[in-house]
Design a protein around this nucleic acid. Structure first.
Lengths: 341, 341
DNA sequence: TACGGTGACTAAACCGGTTCAGACGACCCC
DNA sequence: GGGGTCGTCTGAACCGGTTTAGTCACCGTA
């Protein structure tokens, strides 16, 4: 019963060399002859030796883990398929590197800052993925202050020393508007996220720009908190207007789905009386009635690429910004020509 | 510019005592006089000393972290609000204890086993939360083999040395059936999860038992993989029967929502022609048309309680099973009396 | 032949905590 | 007054790796 796990000292003893040399051999460092390296490696695998992450962490001052802090209302997170997809992507890149994800979910921005500080003070992570960037985001300065490595999902609106991994979601909004314009719509509304969030304001701006390009007015661009509840409320408001829009571009799928329900309750047929588009192209939209025209962003690939970049930053490499395939329109049943008046 | 972080040796030097005594004082161990303890504590806080988790981990052989491995298809996870709520609950219990969550998301059961092994071999976690229990679940034996602490979400169907934290979801299914029976339904179908998953088969059994109690036949209990797609497919099959059911009890909300869409497409009005109930009482169901009668399980509280129990197991306490408030029916618009024939 | 350089290797320090054996004085008891 | 107990504290070992300084044999060269 060899219950104790072998240490590097056991390997050294059996191989007849010093601890230090074993360490060199196992980390592919120079200064070890080919035969000795061979012998050490075979002894190590014979003994079933695995390095102790704890000891390695202490002496190398690394955590071999990356952090993700999600700061949103749990209710909103639960409805939004974005995060599971992101995490799945992160995992794909992390696993082969022998690293793990430390996840923190907090309710507000104050707790978010505290969470990053905890992560660093407690030596939990070597770097973080910054998602849901906000205008003038304090986390950039915080990461710098804490000496953290980081990558941002999207370009911040302030100077940042960290690589940005971006998906051109503006292209998706433009495609959605172009799609609706091509169908003949002229009164198009936008139900977007909080303007404090960069992707909220960026999508809103792209929406306005696309409308302007088509010679249309963008007066119906409304801001929400990204929740289904807000999506429903705003939709009701829009449809109660004297001249309601004939199409609504939503900034995420949960709001679009809630909006469709509200519209249908109010007696609007979709897409006959109202066209609707979502954002993020979640699977959910395939199973609504009608199915939801949406914009797909390959969230999983985004997570994978961001993690890849982060690991290289942590390793000290120079990493340049990464631009992924732009968001693409996925036309389904919820969009059609405007009602004939 | 005091850039280096103070160590326990610094505190000892300034306080004029030995390293060991500082450690005792800071961990509330006996053998330190009140005045000395006071002095040490004040020196520590003056210096802004924070224990190094890495060093502490190495010498105490603990990770101060717990693991959660989610093994489901990413698409299914994304649609299901269960996991975000669970994680939010876990976080609530973890943060005050200074511990963190290491999350792993894998696609299949093989990767799942490998993931647990990695977590342990790499000293990542002190314990794990076992969710989505399956029949004869190999993870129980695996955790024992690896010497992991654990808690299970629900009772396993095999002997387990780990405390179980349970929510009586059977009560929820019974309540849903009772609700439908009271409304006058006699042909009630069940669209449930995989029978390999314990909550899948348990809900199915409760469904059958509840029907039997009401003197009804349970021939329409169908098994799915929990995905929206499967929910849609099975619903279509059920409605195509010569004598379709007048009510369907779904085992999660995404399937119920997909099922409603399919039914509506097929010309069924809900709830006039078909009543529908979901499971897990997600916020989503508030914003469908009609809103979804569902069963609420307080998932967040489940995660909190499970984490609490796990931390106590890790601390070596004797922990007994915890039984949370049973699942409760949340009646909304999708259920009503059967159509008059 | 003396010398500098190089490759292979060892010993020991180090990372920053925890823990254990033992020193020491104060106190108590018989 | 000698011995035992208790509370307080020290010094050193320990956790299991990484890293640095230094030893030693061997080589080619002037």
């Amino acid at each position: 019963m060899m219950s104790e796990r072998p240490t590097i000292a056991d390997v050294a003893r059996v191989a007849g060399v010093s601890k230090g040399l074993v360490s060199f051999a196992l980390n592919d460092k120079p200064g070890v002859s080919v035969e000795t390296r061979q012998r050490i490696l075979s002894v190590a695998s014979e003994l079933g030796w695995k390095p102790s992450m704890r000891a390695r962490s202490l002496s190398s001052r690394r955590a071999y883990a990356v952090g993700l802090v999600i700061a949103r209302d749990p209710g909103i997170i639960a409805a939004d398929p974005f995060f599971p997809a992101l995490i799945a992507g992160i995992e794909i890149a992390l696993a082969p590197a022998g690293q793990v994800l430390v996840l923190s979910m907090v309710a507000d921005e104050e707790a978010e800052i505290a969470s990053y500080r905890q992560l660093v003070e407690n030596d939990r992570v070597d770097g973080v993925i910054l998602t849901d960037l906000r205008t003038n985001d304090a986390r950039i300065a915080l990461a710098v202050e804490l000496g953290l490595s980081a990558v941002t999902l999207g370009h911040p609106d302030i100077p940042s020393p960290f690589p940005a991994v971006t998906v051109d979601d503006a292209a998706g909004i433009r495609a959605a508007v172009a799609h609706l314009v091509a169908l003949g719509h002229t009164r198009i509304a936008h139900v977007g996220g909080p303007s404090r969030m960069l992707h909220g304001s960026r999508r809103r701006n792209s929406f306005l720009a696309a409308l302007a390009e088509a010679g249309l007015s963008g007066e119906l661009a409304i801001e929400t908190d990204f929740s289904s509840a807000d999506g429903a409320r705003v939709t009701a408001d829009l449809l109660a207007l004297a001249e309601p829009p004939t199409a609504i571009v939503y900034s995420n799928d949960p709001m679009a789905i809630a909006g469709m329900s509200v519209a249908q309750r109010a007696g609007f047929s979709i897409p006959q009386d109202l066209s609707v588009t979502g954002f993020d192209g979640s699977d959910l939209g395939n199973f609504t009635n009608p199915s939801l025209t949406s914009v797909s962003t390959q969230v999983q690939e985004w997570g994978r690429a961001a993690t890849d970049a982060l690991l290289r930053v942590i390793a000290g490499e120079d990493v340049v910004d990464v631009e992924l395939a732009p968001a693409q329109l996925v036309p389904r049943e919820s969009s059609a020509g405007p009602p004939r008046t």
